[in-house]
Design a protein around this nucleic acid. Structure first.
Lengths: 203, 203
DNA sequence: GCTACTATAGACAGATCGGTCTGCTATGGA
DNA sequence: TCCATAGCAGACCGATCTGTCTATAGTAGC
């Protein structure tokens, strides 16, 4: 409907592109409307025609990030057949993302840190978290994990931690470190469902 | 030096207490100076006498968080003798932190998400990250991990991911999930230094 | 009593914020 | 040709932001 390829992009599209760049790089609260419309080359009225409010623009920005991240992850996952490889492929997608210049951490974590409790922004972030947690859970179940929910939570921790480390430590290797850790956890979840093998006693 | 226990706390102390509460709960950028001095019951001039700028106050708030978190972690670590238990005790400290009412995620991650690149705030966050990474590395080495740096990075991922999950998913159990995952990774790092046991081939 | 320090309340400045509004222009279909 | 639509520039509003300033009050040491 709104997709037009050739010629100059719609005001809405240019606004979204500018918002994506500025909001992600400098933060949602520290970038004002004027900065966005200046970079988009758009009149202020056009913004409020297209989105109605700054918060709606922020949500649209996050929805775009959601779609893009989900597409990237799906693309990597679908390269493989076995649930084992498909699970680890999520971290290949993350590796690809971290390698992008100017990566500064997970957009949802960043936006959520600036949001007031109950903001629409938090719902947008929650949507992505629910999606990827579901993906981890499904893949963990297919791989034959004894407790798919717990393994999914563990892998989600690694995924989140990878975003934090890549963003704050400026260390893109976090994805490969997370991938190796994920493989270890996955192996353990497949091998021993309950065996508390080592660490018989404390101290 | 500046510590005085009885009577009414210093203006500086009241400012720090108010900043800690407001900045953490609502975010650094969305809380104005006026809110802080109102809650502290302090004149605006006193704030600029004591700290000089808002950014300095924010840094002081983060340094307080650093000291408090480090003290909590150290307290838990020192309860145990073996490096194995000491390593996992970091996640016991995290569990205690997540159980506090109103926990909203790692203060350094939250503040860093609102900072401009190069801000003093980022240096304050980096200081804590360096400290805890060093702790993980030391403990991993003492525990006998084949590659202490990599294991430390993996555990750091779990630690960060736990903060994100507890904050955004409002799920304090993230700490115990992280602890279990840490135990698995630690076991693997002790048992097989190099054995790529399972997953012989892909697909 | 005098001085120096620290605290107070609050006006004020200059900038920026999100959002509304008016008026002008370009384009494309009936 | 006419008109609807979409886009443009920019003035304007009230609120809020960080930071500075004046003026006043309490207090401890000499």
């Amino acid at each position: 409907m709104t997709t037009r390829s050739a010629a100059r992009p719609t005001a809405r599209e240019r606004l979204l592109a500018a918002a994506d760049e500025l909001f992600y790089r400098e933060g949602v609260r520290s970038v004002g409307i004027d900065r966005v419309i200046e970079q988009a080359g758009v009149a202020k009225a056009s913004l409020y025609n297209a989105f109605g409010s700054k918060e709606s623009l922020v949500c649209a920005y996050l929805e775009g990030r959601h779609a893009k991240s989900a597409a990237r992850i799906t693309r990597h996952v679908e390269r493989w057949d076995s649930p084992y490889d498909r699970l680890l492929a999520v971290f290949d997608a993350q590796s690809e993302q971290f390698a992008e210049p100017g990566y500064r951490g997970c957009a949802f974590v960043r936006a959520s840190a600036e949001a007031h409790p109950g903001d629409q922004v938090e719902r947008a972030a929650e949507a992505f978290r629910t999606w990827i947690r579901g993906l981890f859970t499904d893949l963990a179940r297919e791989a034959g994990a004894s407790d798919p929910a717990v393994l999914a939570h563990q892998l989600h921790l690694l995924y989140d931690g990878g975003g934090v480390s890549a963003g704050m430590d400026r260390d893109p290797s976090a994805a490969t470190v997370a991938r190796a850790a994920a493989a270890t956890l996955l192996d353990a979840a497949l091998a021993g469902p309950d065996t508390d093998s080592s660490r018989a006693d404390r101290s």
